[in-house]
C-alpha cells in the first residue's frame, strides 16, 4: 500500500515548495495533505493515520514543537514519522524536538539532496 504525506506550514508558498521538492526528489506518496497550523495538523492526524509528516516550527496558533508533543499522545501516530523543516538551526532546539518525538530535522534553506537523505530511509 502507498504511503501518505502531510506538509504542515503556515506559509502556503512553503507548502508548495516542499511538495515540489518531494516530487523532484523522486519520492512517491499515494496521498498528500496540507495543514496551515499545528491545530489543523492534529485534527487531520486524529482523523486517520499518516505515514510521514513534514512540519514547520515557527507557526501561529500552535507551533511545531507543541504539535509533535501532542501528536505523540495520539494512538494514530505511533508509526508516523515526523520530520521538522525549519529555519531554526540551534542544536539545543533540534535536540529538544527530537527528544519530544520528532524523527528528523531539515533546516531551511534546504537542498533536494537533503530531502532525499532524510526521507528515503523512511519509505523503505
Amino acid at each position: 500500500m502507498g504511503k501518505s504525506l502531510m506538509i504542515v506550514d503556515d506559509s502556503a508558498t512553503m507548502r508548495k515548495i516542499i511538495m515540489r521538492t518531494v516530487r523532484m526528489s523522486g519520492l512517491e506518496f499515494e496521498r498528500t495533505e496540507e495543514a496551515g497550523s499545528g491545530v489543523e495538523a492534529l485534527e487531520k492526524l486524529k482523523a486517520g493515520p499518516i505515514d510521514v509528516v513534514l512540519c514547520d516550527i515557527n507557526m501561529p496558533e500552535m507551533n511545531g514543537t507543541e504539535m509533535v508533543k501532542q501528536a505523540r499522545q495520539l494512538p494514530n501516530c505511533s508509526g508516523t514519522k515526523i520530520i521538522m523543516v525549519s529555519t531554526e538551526s540551534a542544536q539545543e532546539l533540534i535536540d529538544r524536538v527530537i527528544a519530544d518525538g520528532a524523527d528528523g530535522y531539515i533546516t531551511k534553506p534546504f537542498t533536494l539532496e537533503k530531502f532525499q537523505e532524510k526521507l528515503a530511509p523512511l519509505l523503505n
Partner: peptide, 10 residues
C-alpha cells in the same frame, strides 16, 4: 525574509 534570517542566524 524568514529563510534569510534563518541563514543569518545559523
Amino acid at each position: 525574509a524568514n529563510m534569510l534570517l534563518g541563514a543569518v542566524k545559523s
